[in-house]
Amino acid sequence: MIRHMFGKFAKAAALAAAVSFIAAGTTASAAAKFPRKQIQIVVPYAPGGASDTVARIYGKELEKQLGKPVVVVNRTGASGAVGLESVKNSRPDGYTMSYMPVESTMISALGLSDISSDDFTFVCRIMTIPAAITVSKDAKWNTLDDFLKYAKENPGKVTVGNSGPGSIWNVAAASLEQAAGVKFNHVPFDGAAPAVAALLGKNIDAVAVSPSEVKSNVDSGQFKVLAVLGDKRSSVVPDVKTSKELGYDVSAMGWGGFAVPKGTPADVVKILDDASAKVAQSQALKDLLAQRGFEYAYLNGKEMDKFAKSQLESYKVLIPKLIKK
């Protein structure tokens, strides 16, 4: 009820803003003055995480491009729905941006909230993160084929950890399951780190998380990565083949970009889009992505809008099938 009232209030505020824009005169004037004040980027995840770090570096570089302060604010909860909703309900004037995770195309299919990437206009995509099917060093499987063959012979016996029910890594493991015609025992954890810890402690057989989350244990020889589920190989484990190379038609990856609420004036979107293109070229951002094990995968706003739409459509069909409720 209260939330409802805020929503109404925000809508009224948005309307007022729109009216004031029209009252301000020509559309060109809005763009000529943008940005006049500080820009806020909402990250729907906790501070210190991967998305947060990327957003902070992006913010710092954006500040250089636009000449106005850019601050990062974290609003966590409900797979990102809480933070995304706050941006959707903010004034569509370009001064409130959102970090957009892959979950923005999954939340509505999961039934957590009505919000989706359709409520936003993208200004860029920065990166992608493939899923890495990882097992313990002394596991009896050395290839993806071995692993899936065993899973086929022992349906429901192989325990695969993921970072939470309905998370992208849960969907990744379920997609592989579907493509290979096997059945895993999915074990959701509260985030990727506890899942990795459980594999290290031999409480589960495998994990499907991002390569960077298992890198240190792969380097020290405790884990081996059987395959990555991306379109391209991962720079973190360049020797590991993709599932497509190995003959399984499955691709599941996380991605991260930035967007503004739908209804933001086109010229403002363009300014942010152009600035983001320059930010994406910056060395600081590329270094960060390389260090954290993310794949640099820039798309401009228009391309990203199209990509997000296709993701939204496919998850709408896929998720209800994968996550049996």
């Binding site: 939330r3 409900a78 939470g164 029910p165 959701p188």
Partner: peptide, 22 residues
């Protein structure tokens, strides 16, 4: 209160996003 930790189903959230996070 909040999203079920295993099945991702909403519980006692009174249809508010704020309570989805528990």
């Amino acid at each position: 209160v909040g999203v079920d930790p295993m099945l991702a189903v909403k519980r006692f959230t009174l249809d508010t996003t704020a309570l989805v996070a528990g």
